[in-house]
Nucleic acid binder design. Structure first.
Length: 599
RNA sequence: GGGACCGUAGCUCAAUUUGGUUAGAGCACCGGACUGUCGAUCCGGAGGUUGCGGGUUCGAAUCCCGUCGGUCUCGCCA
């Protein structure tokens, strides 16, 4: 039986300083390491707050209690949980450990209680060993004791708290929305939940609270936010989990600029909490400019090395790859890599195989050396074309040009990742720098050639920029929307839009998207209904909390900032989820497994 | 659905390229020594179905086929 007194900590393990000398203290924590010197034992005691050194001195002759304590200390092992009472003592000037915040002092133990023993752990929760990810996830409780994980969890909490505090001050209220809701046909695949009480019916877990937050606006909530889990049943990536957390917010009677301003305030506070810079003025880039110069709608603006469209210049060459692309309506774009002429054949081949992943058939290149083009496609480019290219992109001797030629979308799709890859390889930007920007004026819709229909770029509830609905229907591809994304270092951190609050416009947009009246009624009828009863103009945005934390701690994976993440196949090594269920459970849901999976 | 890489002791890795003695090392673990360490040190010990299944071979961690698991990625993710 553990006595209550042993649990009454006076301090945590990161707290004691020189100012606490001679205090009687009690600490609880985990044995991080024990160092037995025969006549003196040191224990590093760890908790979430830090590490404090505890010392066990050789007991005096005849001190039986001291001897018992020393023997107990002698038996301690890594990761045992102990409670120590003792006296704070200065280590002595030559024994200070500068690596520890508490490194000036130590606690001389006067009483030791073992609160729990530990089997020898599958891996040491230190910062020195890289442990395989599935092992870390299986023993996540050990992994969470590692300083990096502890730090990430704490920062994640602080970031969430900062978000809430800014929005609370700005008059927002946090409202919860359902997790058991209705499947929506658009967008990602839904996670389905069978309904026991409604045979053969299913709930869906929300991909986002989009419709609910709009309805909250109709309900007069005015300013809403929610730190909320979202679910999408799609394949995973390092930066994609099937369940992830958003800071979701929505505001009534606002313009796009209002939403962006609030978001800037939130992000500023978040960055301050994380000890990072945030610009006073976040650059705003239009979608068209982003795609033109960066090849992508989430530009990494930490560095230049922009894409240049050189179709006009190379149209006159005899190089069929270039002219063919242009003649069939595509383009030729390039990036000019400063100092890239020193790339070896092997390095260029590596980039060629890199772009192949993005659908490129090859990578045309030309080095600039001694006033002329050399190698690669140089022979197709006469002196005049070479000079025009130099002038157009500001290229110098020592650079290399990487060309892509195809339909413009494909060209961008290849050059955008190549630009980022090369910049990282040659160190074009500071690894610990942050560059935020807004991307605005998104197209309302994009043509889906496969399905032969117009798809929303953002979602079907996004307000078109133009008032003229006839013009919208006549040329949908030209229409812009009141949508905006916030981007950091080439990663989309959040996005939102002004929503349609007018039922007539909403119906028109559904019509454009090929969603018939009946279908719209069945799937979004509740929203259309709400729009009939005094829906205020409103708009909002959602920030990806996991991605923001990931970026703030420079983690390579989202899994490093989520306490209990899933593996790439969507499993949880800790719990074993997902798993089979009993036939009884299935029967109760009127479900039957038709094809049993192999185990 | 496709591509790439990986899987050897509890953990991190070596031995695989070129098949060949008893599969090694560090950390952790167990025992011992040591009164000032701090990723303690020193001495000793134990620890292996080389993911799994099959094949080739006199002989397989090593080569081949399949399979399972992990990671990255293309597609996918309004």
């Amino acid at each position: 039986m553990i006595s209550d007194a042993t649990l009454k900590r006076t301090h945590n393990c990161g707290q004691l300083r020189e100012s606490d000398l001679d205090s009687e203290v009690r600490l609880c924590g985990w044995v991080r390491s024990y160092r037995d010197h025969g006549g003196v034992i040191f224990v590093d005691l760890r908790d979430r707050f830090g590490i404090t050194q505890v010392v066990f001195d050789t007991p005096e002759e005849g001190d039986e209690a001291g001897k018992a304590m020393y023997a107990l200390a002698d038996s301690l092992r890594n990761e045992w949980v102990i409670s120590v009472a003792g006296l704070v003592r200065h280590r002595g000037e030559d024994r200070i450990n500068p690596k520890l915040d508490t490194g000036q002092i130590e606690v001389v133990s006067t009483e030791l209680t073992v609160l729990n023993e530990s089997d020898s752990v599958p891996f040491e929760p230190d910062s020195f060993t890289e442990v395989a990810e599935d092992t870390r996830l299986k023993y996540r409780y050990i992994d969470l004791r590692r300083p990096e994980m502890t730090r990430s969890m704490i920062l994640r909490h602080e970031i969430t708290a900062a978000m809430r505090s800014v929005l609370n001050e700005e008059g927002f209220i946090e409202v919860e929305t359902p997790f058991l809701t209705k499947s929506t046909p658009e967008g990602a695949r839904d996670f389905l939940v069978p309904s026991r009480m409604n045979q053969a019916d299913f709930y869906a877990l929300p991909q986002s609270p989009q419709l609910f937050k709009q309805i909250l606006m109709v309900g007069g909530m005015d300013r809403y936010y929610q730190v909320v889990r979202c679910f999408r049943d799609e394949d995973l990536r390092a930066d994609r989990q099937p369940e992830f957390t958003q800071l979701d917010l929505e505001m009534s009677f606002v313009t796009q600029a209002d939403v962006m301003n609030i978001t800037d305030k939130v992000l500023k506070k978040v960055c301050t909490v994380a000890g990072k810079e945030f610009p006073d003025q976040v650059p705003i880039i239009t979608y068209d400019e982003a795609v033109d110069k960066y090849g992508i709608d989430r530009p990494d603006i930490r560095f230049e090395m922009l894409l240049h469209n050189v179709s006009d210049i190379v149209a006159k060459t005899d190089f069929k790859v270039f002219t063919g692309a242009i003649e069939s309506g595509g383009s030729v774009k390039l990036i000019c890599v400063p100092g890239g002429a020193k790339f070896t054949r092997k390095e260029i081949d590596a980039y060629t195989s890199f772009v192949a992943d993005y659908g490129a058939k090859g990578l045309a290149w030309a080095k600039l050396e001694d006033g002329a083009f050399a190698g690669g496609v140089s022979k197709f480019l006469n002196a005049d074309v070479q000079q025009q290219l130099r002038d157009a992109v500001g290229a110098n001797d020592g650079d290399i040009l990487f060309f892509a030629a195809a339909d413009t979308d494909s060209v961008n799709k290849v050059l955008a990742p190549l630009r980022v890859k090369v910049a990282g390889d040659i160190g074009l930007y500071e690894p610990n720098s942050y560059a935020w920007c807004w991307v605005t004026e998104f197209p309302l819709v994009a043509y889906n050639a496969q399905q032969k229909r117009w798809d929303s770029l953002h979602h079907p509830f996004t307000m078109p920029s133009c008032d003229d609905l006839d013009a919208l229907m006549a040329d949908p591809g030209a229409a812009k929307s009141l949508a905006y994304d916030v981007v950091c270092n080439g990663t989309e951190m959040g996005g939102g839009s002004i929503r349609i609050h007018d039922r007539k416009i909403q119906e028109k947009v559904f019509e454009l998207l090929g969603i018939g009246t009946e279908e719209a009624e069945e799937k979004f009828g509740f929203l259309l209904d709400a729009l009939r009863f005094g829906a205020p103009p409103h708009g909002g945005l959602a920030l990806g909390l996991d991605r923001i934390v990931m970026e703030m701690v420079s983690a390579p994976s989202l899994r490093d900032v989520i306490a209990f993440p899933k593996t790439q196949r969507g499993t949880c090594p800790l719990t074993g989820a997902p798993a089979e269920v009993d036939d009884d459970q299935l029967a109760e849901l009127d479900l039957k497994i038709i094809v049993p999976h192999q185990k």
